[in-house]
Design a protein around this nucleic acid. Structure first.
Lengths: 189, 189
DNA sequence: CCATGTAGCTAATCATCGTTAGCCGAGCTG
DNA sequence: CAGCTCGGCTAACGATGATTAGCTACATGG
């Protein structure tokens, strides 16, 4: 693995485990195997490390969501696939998702604004999916906002507790949580 | 309001808004109307401020949960009431709940251990509620763990976005989210 | 009216951290 | 072999921030 990739991976692990502010460059260096100042031969700043993790994560998440709904027009199927993508991403990249959700506050402008925009866009996608199902008469919820937030929060919660080697396989969690999402909108099996 | 209560309230507001680490004693003092060192005439440390917020919050949450299920034996009704209490607490004390969820990492031992114990106890309550419903044949989920996590995460998500003066009233959110919880376990109206 | 405690302030302490400066050895290139 | 670049190191800088020390004004109670 490239030195830089290694640093990024370690930073992600530590940001997820102790938080951005609580992680020092010396911490990162200690795991990578060098002193804090040497890190600057590979990265431009600690803030940059965070900014890149977060923007890449949000972009990937958004892309995964768009791709998931691209091949069908059925509202139920669209919401199911979007939720599957959402949950799968949060299970497979739980550290990225975790940091992405929790450390927005630590991001400095203009990165924060950009990440927030991406997130708003992502949320809008889900709200639209719910709205479409309501309009089609296949979902029964009184507020598309509450329902879409509830579904999105499933993923964020997942990123907090999911472990690759835990009790549940990725597929099991993806399936069960997608089922939950459809039940939330009143369209469960 | 007592000076000390005022300080606690300001600390809570700032911890919720910028995070514990990012909040300085000077920040708190600036809002209260005094210099950082003067705060120590009322408070023993910044860490103590956090520890008290978190332990009080967890104790209140646990008490609210226990009280909610105390007066009925019906599994469906018990889960509904527990969820109502859960969601209501997160709506009414969103700052406390938000800090309580996010700043466990910033809590130093032995406080952290105690708060984690309380949280584990609280989670166990919900898992037992779900298990009881499954045993009684009124819920249909394959994993009580996933279902209870999903329900608990609804509250945590709520604390992140809910605003007292927002689009939805507390009662509306409580009702809708409790409905979501029952739908998640396959017992929705 | 004085004595005392309360609650503020400034200055100082002490530690931590991100980041920069400048040195140096190893290894590739001509 | 000479020199350059890469990537490490130590030392130092500069800022920040929690906390302590020690001073002072004021209010209260004897």
């Amino acid at each position: 693995m490239d030195r830089l990739d290694h640093i990024r991976a370690v930073a992600l692990e530590l940001f997820a485990g102790k938080g951005y502010e609580a992680t020092t460059m010396a911490d990162i260096g200690a795991v990578v195997g060098m002193r804090a100042p040497s890190l600057y031969k590979h990265v431009t700043s600690k803030q940059d490390l965070l900014a890149e993790i977060m923007t890449v994560t949000m972009r990937e998440l958004l892309a995964a969501g768009r791709a998931a709904v691209a091949t069908t027009a059925d509202p139920v199927e669209r919401l199911r696939r979007a939720t599957e993508a959402h949950v799968r991403y949060h299970a497979r990249h739980r550290r990225e998702a975790f940091v992405g959700n929790r450390e927005i506050r630590s991001l400095v402008e203009p990165h924060r604004g950009r990440v927030l925009e991406l997130r708003a866009e992502y949320e809008t996608c889900f709200r639209d999916l719910v709205r479409a199902g309501i309009a089609a008469g296949v979902f029964s919820v009184t507020s598309e906002r509450l329902a879409s937030y509830a579904i999105l929060d499933l993923g964020m919660g997942l990123a907090a507790w999911y472990r690759e080697d835990g009790e549940h396989s990725e597929d099991a969690v993806v399936w069960q949580y997608s089922e939950f999402a459809l039940r939330i909108v009143g369209s469960g099996g």
